[in-house]
């Protein structure tokens, strides 16, 4: 790991100012950034610790809820408001990492966690467009079982590994950020990017912008939601495929739906078409299968991950079925 300076910021403005120095980065729980520093993937010259900003509250705001960027994943998952009104988010968080990691990880850091692509994480591999733009993509000819089936490009087939982000996508969250030019909000759908020809950019956040909060709209899916995570062991593994499914029911009719997939794309893959197809429908295997087909429409596998297409479909049907039944994960 390269030597670096460490600064503990006490106010958002101070943090934003400090991070404008060349090579500086924000430090949340450090569970992703510090790992990447150890393997020389990230080489910041300074870390601006943002865990001492006053961004650790979960509060009701209007009909919705605002989550401070510094709230730890464990605290968020177990928060009364989240558990009762947004159980989908709670489930997604609890399905991620391990208790120790969740105790450290922050909401802001989780939004920005980087891909787990093997070739990105080991600097000895010369080809990785995300790490070194223009160098190529070692994953396309290497191990790509964990890689994207949707929205990938010839430059990069990496996935976003987060569970939390998938739930945030299904819940239609908004990200609040502050930067040198002031504050702005970014819809979750516009926050993460597809790789295209610029896979080095994970998100549309500027390097000198600080995430201050995540805002959830009024809860719609409190009674009918399910986060299904399919993985290679029962816990402490990233998703091969995950499904965040939320339904708002009026009697036996679906009033609105939130559906997003994890482990399949460079961003949490929310399918508006699938959601739309569910509106007005009665929960049934046929309706769920139709939504599943729509959600993975256009999927393109690589050598080792073709199974994800069928797996995603089966998982969507299962998650929607359980959501409709009102079963909690």
């Amino acid at each position: 790991m390269n030597p670096f300076n460490y600064q503990r910021a006490t106010a958002p403005d101070e943090a934003v100012h400090a991070v404008s120095a060349r090579g500086a980065k924000f430090l949340g729980g450090g569970t992703n950034l510090v790992d990447l520093m150890k393997s020389n993937v990230e080489q910041p010259t300074a870390l601006i610790d943002v865990t001492h900003l006053d961004l650790t509250h979960v509060i009701t705001s209007g009909n919705g809820t605002t989550i401070g960027a510094g709230v730890r994943n464990s605290d968020l998952a177990n928060h009364e408001i989240i558990r009762t009104k947004y159980p989908l988010l709670s489930q997604a968080l609890l399905s991620g990492a391990s208790p120790q990691l969740r105790n450290m990880a922050t909401t802001g850091g989780n939004l920005l966690q980087r891909t787990r692509c093997y070739y990105f994480m080991d600097t000895v591999f010369p080809a990785c467009n995300k790490r070194t733009p223009g160098s190529g993509c070692a994953a396309i000819k290497g191990f790509n079982r964990n890689h994207a089936i949707l929205g990938a490009s010839d430059e990069c087939i990496a996935t976003n590994p987060s569970d939390m982000n998938v739930a945030l996508a299904a819940l239609n969250a908004t990200i609040h950020v502050t930067g040198p030019k002031g504050q702005r909000t970014i819809a979750i759908a516009d926050f993460h990017r597809l790789p295209g020809t610029t896979p080095q950019l994970d998100t549309n956040l500027q390097p000198d912008e600080l995430i201050t909060a995540v805002e959830l709209p009024a809860p719609k899916f409190a009674k009918h939601s399910y986060y299904l995570k399919v993985r290679d062991r029962q816990s402490y593994a990233f998703a091969l495929v995950s499904v965040a499914a939320g339904l708002a029911m009026n009697g036996n009719t679906i009033q609105s739906a939130g559906l997003a997939l994890g482990g399949v794309a460079h961003k949490p893959w929310r399918s508006l078409e699938a959601e739309k197809s569910l509106v007005g429908a009665t929960p049934s295997p046929a309706a769920f299968k139709k939504a599943a087909d729509l959600a993975v429409a256009g999927a393109k596998p690589t050598e080792h991950n073709a199974f994800k297409i069928e797996l995603a479909k089966q998982s969507i049907v299962r998650a929607l079925t359980l959501a409709a039944q009102g079963v909690q994960a």
Binding site: R116, Y118, Y119, D122, V124, F125, A138, K141, G142, F143, D232, R233, A237, F238
Partner: peptide, 16 residues
């Protein structure tokens, strides 16, 4: 890795 001969999952997150 079949090209580089490097173990790609040489840590406890990836070696299950």
């Amino acid at each position: 890795d079949p090209t580089f001969g490097r173990t790609v999952n040489e840590n406890f997150a990836d070696y299950h």
